[in-house]
């Protein structure tokens, strides 16, 4: 594996340079072992197409999304304002996020608090790169494979982006099979609303088991996701049904990186 080139904003600043885009990694992408692989896949794509980007590194902090969804508006706004100070300090104009929750929060909830940026999700960036011809995609190992895409709530219903991840998957010459509950009708993975950080309330089933069951019923080779929390939930669900040897759960960016041997 080639060495990743991950400049920080501070590095570039010291050299008197500004990046074209800031990659907002997010907490899961920074700390969760599985999600780190998604982060690296995104960086590999960025490196591959020679985009001038940077990360905040240790200056990045939680967007406050889980605090806000859990009802802690104070903590959310504290986080938001501190992050906005950092981002505005670097005069950031454009941000790509590795997580739909960071994407939604920075895009929609930061502007009113003084943080106005152009924010895109990483699947939207990949789609842009493909459309502009900067990134060539051929099916590679995914050619003819059966893929089911699970919509992240905060990308799909939350922000109306259903096409970007699907367009990318189709570029892989894969067979995209839609679950009955997809797009606007997609079922949550069970992590949203800060559920990721607590035990589920009493019920007769875990939401991620319900969702994984639906995905596995499509008999896919790969369950594709676009969110590190969906990744955790769907992987747990696939393990629940002891299908982890047969069915991979991959982020769309990982599929692109793998298909291009990055």
């Amino acid at each position: 594996m080639s060495q990743l080139n991950v400049p920080t904003m501070a590095d570039l600043m010291a050299k008197g340079e500004t990046p074209d885009i800031l990659f907002w990694v997010g907490c899961a992408g920074s700390f969760d072992d599985r999600a780190k692989k998604i982060t690296k896949a995104i960086v590999k794509i960025l490196n591959h197409v020679n985009i001038k980007f940077a990360v905040l590194g240790t200056e990045e902090s939680c967007t406050g999304d889980p605090a806000k969804r859990a009802g802690n508006e104070f903590l959310f706004q504290m986080q938001a304002m501190q992050n906005i100070q950092v981002l505005n300090g670097y005069d950031v104009k454009k941000i790509v996020t590795g997580c739909p929750h960071c994407f939604n929060t920075i895009k929609n909830e930061y502007p009113e608090l003084g943080g106005k940026y152009e924010v895109i999700h990483h699947t939207q960036l990949v789609q842009e790169l493909i459309d502009s011809g900067k990134l060539k995609v051929e099916g590679g190992e995914f050619k003819g494979k059966k893929i089911t895409f699970h919509d992240p709530c905060y990308l799909g219903r939350g922000n109306g982006e259903y096409e970007a991840p699907r367009n990318i998957i189709q570029k892989l010459d894969a067979e995209l099979n839609e679950m009955k509950r997809s797009r606007a009708n997609g079922l949550c993975c069970g992590a949203g609303g800060a559920q990721m950080f607590k035990e589920a309330e009493k019920g007769n089933k875990e939401v991620n088991v319900e969702r994984s069951e639906e995905a596995l019923a499509m008999n896919p080779d790969v369950i594709a996701v676009g969110c590190p929390f969906c990744m955790t939930m769907m992987r747990d669900g696939v393990k629940h049904f002891e299908k982890e040897d047969k069915v991979q759960v991959l982020d769309v960016s990982e599929m692109i990186a793998q298909a291009n041997d990055l």
Partner: peptide
């Protein structure tokens, strides 16, 4: 989770 965000800037 709140405490972690306050202290570590991450929910973990």
């Amino acid at each position: 989770m709140f405490t972690n965000i306050e202290n570590n800037g991450a929910p973990w």
